[in-house]
Simulated assay, not measured.
Amino acid sequence: MMSAERVAQLEYSEFQAAMLDEEKRRRKAAKIVAVLGHFLGRDKDVLAGLTVADIGCSAGFIADELAAAGAKHTFGVDIDVPGLRKASQRFGERVAFVCADGTALPFPDGSVDVLVFNHIYEHVVDPDAIMAEMRRVLSDDGVLYLGLGNRLGVMEPHYKLPFLSYLPPALADRYVRLSGRADSYYERYRTRRGLRKMVRGLRVWDYTFPVLATPAAFAGNELFPGVVGRVAGGVLSRLPRPVLRALLPVVPTYLWVATRGDRRPAGLSLPRPPERVRPL
């Protein structure tokens, strides 16, 4: 839902240093490419022959990795002008960077084969309008990768404050001010139920537990690195399905792949295969 108090976060990379952390961004990109590779049933040149767009690309590291995965045409879209400038200077030879709002994507209907929307929705004024635009430009056989933060994740990832995203805006603003981390709390997260509503009109597959339980299949331990990741993966791989379903409402991040049609994951079977998400 659009909030009258919020305005677009222009020049996001200028005040969010994480967008310029190249090593971390490329690790995230490796996970994204691995998930897409599994869904498409491709081990090499995962995006070969496809038109790909990273929505909310900022400094362009993920878009660059999408191009390296063989994409025929790669676009990076954002309103972060300083980030786009840096991206174009480094990666402009193989990625076309476009300054555009996600609510008015500069692509014809059904023209994009793969869209990436990774941890962006909480930063935009109207995520539902952006989702509608992505549905519009996604091809009939296209794939949309979604990295989605959960409002009920205990530790808020931007400010490292427990239960911050649980609070109504006025209390959240007060909390971050008292912590000395910021003057106000901009981000707006949704629960799993709200996210299911956001993806209505799409067929969605949940890769959250497959990635956590089998990190080696999805470019290492980006979500929980090192020993923690191996332990977490081992525990999750042994949990019964009803227990995993019970944990879903409080998982910090959901990794979903969505399509307009009936396309299904084409990769090899996993100990925890992706399951359908039923949009509201």
Results as ranks from 00 to 15, higher is better:
Leu10Ala: 12
Ser13Arg: 00
Glu14Gln: 09
Lys31Arg: 15
Leu36Ile: 03
Asp43Lys: 13
Asp45Thr: 05
Val52Ser: 00
Cys57Asn: 01
Ala59Pro: 08
Glu65Pro: 07
His73Cys: 06
His73Pro: 00
Thr74Gln: 01
Phe75Asp: 00
Gly76Tyr: 00
Pro82Asn: 06
Leu84Pro: 06
Val95Phe: 02
Thr103Trp: 08
Pro106Ser: 07
Pro108Trp: 03
Val116Asp: 03
His123Tyr: 11
Val124Tyr: 06
Ala129Phe: 05
Met131Ile: 12
Met134Tyr: 04
Asp141Met: 02
Leu144Tyr: 07
Tyr145Ser: 08
Asn150Gln: 11
Asn150Glu: 06
Lys160Leu: 14
Lys160Gly: 12
Leu161Met: 11
Leu161Trp: 11
Phe163Lys: 09
Ser165Tyr: 11
Arg177Ile: 09
Asp183Tyr: 10
Ser184Pro: 04
Tyr185His: 15
Thr191Ser: 15
Thr191Gln: 04
Arg196Pro: 05
Leu202Cys: 05
Asp206Trp: 03
Phe209Ala: 09
Thr214Gln: 10
Ala216Pro: 06
Phe218Gln: 07
Glu222Pro: 07
Phe224Cys: 08
Gly234Phe: 09
Val235Asp: 08
Leu239Cys: 08
Pro249Val: 07
Val250Leu: 14
Thr253Gln: 14
Thr253His: 12
Ala258Ile: 03
Gly261Ile: 10
Pro265Gln: 03
Leu270Asn: 01
Arg276Gln: 13
Val277Ile: 13
Leu280Gln: 11
